[in-house]
């Protein structure tokens, strides 16, 4: 039986003080960016704490250069021996190849998948469905209707997240990474309704994210949201969080997660 997974989500952006360097950041509702450190050293800390996987997303709106991103993944892969998903600005199967050759295991696509759904099918056939993670950002619009947003949450689409999720699955996605933009960085819990409806209606693994601030929020994501994995950014980035203690709390709530040693 596969265990439920806990996944630190590492968001990358050009450093304010060093335009050539990418740093790890946390966000609130996709804004309010705070720089928190070096992605490679943080990844090593997560490995020491036995995180199950890592997700790296380039959220820089001005620099989507794949070479720059793949250089970071190449560094990470020298010392990190766990599954790595990479996303942010990936547009083609050449971009996939470049990142996979530099140590990525799975590629997350969002805006490009939405604008060019055939990219999902093409890459799924070429690299295997297990390699294609479709990332879906959503929130309630002014009228209170759930809608998918693309371009880093800036552009509203006409799709309901469930509809887009099921379409992406049909096109060949191997996994879905869900995030409610309004919950991002707020540490008040996941959007359980949408996660649950997508989990119950699809057959591929679901990674829920956006809003974890307590161990209890992970537990809810697994039990109520029926997610296969929960990813979090600011939760894991906070230095006061004891990862091992969080794992124990989640395990004690009856969730089948990996306990190291």
């Amino acid at each position: 039986m596969s265990k439920k997974r806990l996944i630190p989500k590492l968001q990358l952006k050009t450093a304010l003080a060093h335009p050539n360097k990418m740093v790890l950041v946390v966000t609130k509702q996709f804004n309010g960016v705070i720089e928190i450190g070096d992605p490679v050293s943080q990844a090593k800390i997560f490995q020491a704490q036995a995180a199950d996987e890592l997700v790296f997303i380039n959220i820089d709106r001005n620099n989507k250069e794949i070479k720059r991103l793949s250089a970071i993944i190449n560094n990470v892969s020298e010392e990190i021996f766990m599954p790595i998903t990479v996303g942010g600005g990936i547009k083609s199967s050449d971009d996939f190849r470049e990142l996979l050759n530099n140590g990525a295991d799975k590629i997350s696509i969002n805006t490009s998948a939405f604008n060019h759904p055939e990219l999902i099918t093409e890459t799924s056939e070429k690299f295997g469905a297990q390699c294609v993670v479709v990332s879906i950002d959503f929130k309630k619009d002014e009228e209170g209707e759930y809608r998918v947003y693309i371009n880093g949450g800036q552009t509203k689409t006409s799709y309901h997240p469930l509809d887009w999720a099921l379409r992406a699955e049909k096109l060949g996605a191997g996994e879905l990474l869900l995030c409610n933009i309004s919950h991002d960085g707020m540490r008040e819990g996941l959007d359980l309704d949408i996660i649950k409806s997508i989990s119950e209606n699809s057959t591929i693994p679901i990674i829920a994210s956006g809003g974890c601030g307590l161990a209890q929020h992970f537990v809810e994501g697994f039990l109520k949201g029926k997610a296969d994995a929960v990813a979090a950014g600011s939760f894991f980035a906070h230095r006061d969080q004891n990862f091992m203690q969080t794992r124990s709390q989640i395990k004690n709530a009856g969730i089948n997660i990996r306990m190291h040693h």
Binding site: S2, K3, R5, D52, Q130, G174, I204, P205, A229
Partner: peptide, 9 residues
């Protein structure tokens, strides 16, 4: 249980 099986066992 999903196929492909992806994860720690």
């Amino acid at each position: 249980l999903r196929v492909p099986n992806i994860g720690w066992n």
